[in-house]
């Protein structure tokens, strides 16, 4: 069981959260010409590192906020959580 510290509600069990994937993926700028390649990379291609991973979680059964988590994908240790606008 993961214990995740929601930046708004504090420490809660994994059961209250939904996973949102890699948080480092950036959507191509709006109102800018986007090549197919840029768009495909945004939609489908991921680094999937073995080790530290910055990811999105959704406190779906709590405050319903999205936030960032820095977690180790091998040990599942959570180093840091942050609001969506903050850098990790």
């Amino acid at each position: 069981m993961l214990n995740i510290k929601c930046p708004y509600c504090g420490m809660r069990s994994q059961n209250e959260f939904a996973y949102g994937g890699d948080a480092t993926v950036k959507r191509p700028e709006l109102n800018k010409e986007v090549s197919d390649k840029e768009w495909d990379t945004f939609v489908y291609f991921r680094k999937s590192p073995r080790g530290k991973h910055v990811e999105l979680w959704h406190h779906v059964s709590g405050c319903r906020q999205w936030f960032k988590v820095q977690r180790d994908t091998v040990t599942h240790e959570i180093f840091k959580t942050a609001e969506i606008s903050e850098e990790i």
């Binding site: 996973y19 994937g21 999937s48 991973h53 091998v74 599942h76």
Partner: peptide, 8 residues
């Protein structure tokens, strides 16, 4: 799946 990236 467990639902989040994992190599565990």
């Amino acid at each position: 799946l467990d639902g989040y990236n994992s190599y565990a």
